[in-house]
Design a binder for these strands. Structure first.
Lengths: 257, 257
DNA sequence: ACAAAAGTGTTACTTTTACACCCATGA
DNA sequence: TCATGGGTGTAAAAGTAACACTTTTGT
């Protein structure tokens, strides 16, 4: 079985290849059918789910490691990726977790094996365009799947906490940064953008006020094109003015003081 | 020489005691004479300065490690401490740095010694009440000193980048969080608080507007007491309503959306 | 023709900004 | 008594919030 082979390989070469004690975990968020989705991997023996994560090569920047994990899972490159927190509690449970799993794999490891050591994990979140993602096969997990943010399964270890922290961070950043590029398709309607905001904030916004405000940021271009095939009046399509969008990402809105 | 002894000890027991590849660095900020100050340690052979940093014990939460570093340097406990970024580039220069220094110490280490490996560092910032700090002797540095944020020396490695990132983070957080507790004495004037804001933001604020806004947050109590011995009209003293202050820390101001 | 989302403006209210005078104190 | 920072209010401007009707489209 490929998975088993993969694990054996990882276990034997990992100590040599990877930074010890450190991992990355990615909260990969996509937007689909007006709902925010997160990509999770199923544990190989239990019906619990984990964030896609991985280790860091000894000469690899941590950001690059997170990007690599992302690429491995989604096939996407150059997506929006940002570290948001480090989870550095000594998690005792991880140890028992691994031992139990490896036993079921028919693999024995020494008690001081690197995989059993404590890991500090760097949390990254990524915003991806749902429609562009092809879930790639992966050897370490049985299955990967998008989950609605409002309807989540049981999580492995503290991964629920990591996800919650990512969304909390995103919610705060919404107040001084634009969002949407990488989460929405190239062309989108203002209502779609508003739905994204509403989903992240988990509250309703007034349509006209939302439009006025978002337009005042000057990061949008209204196209001479309307969305076709929708059951009602055709809305205008918009796209981001990527230069101004990136400007806004750097400078931020709402100085406050 | 105590420093040398300390280093030998650290080098020999470190691999056993500490998480490999990971360190913490603390940006310790204090406020004094209306200026924001940062605590730096002098390198033992060169006239360059470093952030106080340290390693993480194998069973120690990363936050606790940062707190410990802080305590070792300032004698303070229970201060405001927050992780703000991870610096995870493979920094090649560190290696040559250590080799050169240890040579001067008359210490030889193997090429694969743990101290020569790549370290990912977790950046923490701390806000401390300047007047309460007693700079404690420390064996690894020749000298420690408060530096004005606007007048800084040459830094070791990428520590300048870490400091800049800490201040940038602080500046952003000022827009949705209160600040001042732990940086100001128990009783302070509104002007002192305003000076703190002005220093962090690096710009001037209107006195009346500042007061109106800060009072509207309802985190302050005006005391029936005035500051004495100042060369002009005695200003009222204020203190934080710590319950409301902490509430505000959790909930945040300026929702924006 | 009907149901449903899209487009659009105005008014009241709140918040922010800009600005100036008198007062209290120590030197 | 003088110099200096402290205390205080208001008016104009900007921004935010609340709200409703007409248009367009697919069915």
């Amino acid at each position: 079985m490929a998975m088993n082979e993969y694990i054996r390989q990882l276990l034997s070469s990992g100590e040599h290849d990877f930074l010890p004690s450190l991992s990355v975990d990615c909260v990969i968020l996509g937007f689909h059918e007006n709902q925010l989705k997160v990509l999770l991997l199923k544990h190989r023996y239990m019906d619990i789910w984990a964030l896609p994560g991985g280790f860091i090569y000894k000469d690899e920047p941590t950001d690059a490691a997170a990007m690599r994990v992302l690429r491995e899972r989604t096939g996407l490159n150059e997506i929006f990726l940002r570290q948001f927190y480090i989870f550095g509690e000594p998690e005792r449970s991880q140890r028992e977790f691994h031992i139990r799993d490896l036993e079921k794999d028919g693999i024995n490891v020494n008690d001081d094996h690197w995989i059993l050591q404590r890991f500090v994990t760097i949390g990254y979140y990524a915003l991806v365009e749902f429609s562009k993602v092809n879930l790639l096969p992966y050897t370490i997990a049985e299955k990967s799947m998008w989950w609605d943010i409002h309807d989540l399964p049981e999580f492995m270890l503290d991964h629920r906490k990591i996800l919650d922290k990512a969304i909390e961070t995103l919610r705060i950043q919404l107040n001084y940064q634009p969002i949407g590029y990488n989460l929405l398709p190239e062309k989108f309607t203002l209502t779609e953008l508003q739905n994204l905001y509403e989903t992240i904030l988990d509250k309703n916004l007034d349509r006209r006020n939302f439009q006025r405000k978002i337009i005042s940021y000057q990061i949008l271009r209204r196209l001479n094109e309307k969305k076709k095939g929708v059951p009602h009046k055709s809305p205008y399509l918009h796209s981001f003015d990527i230069e101004k969008y990136n400007d806004a990402l750097n400078k931020g809105f709402n100085a406050g003081w």
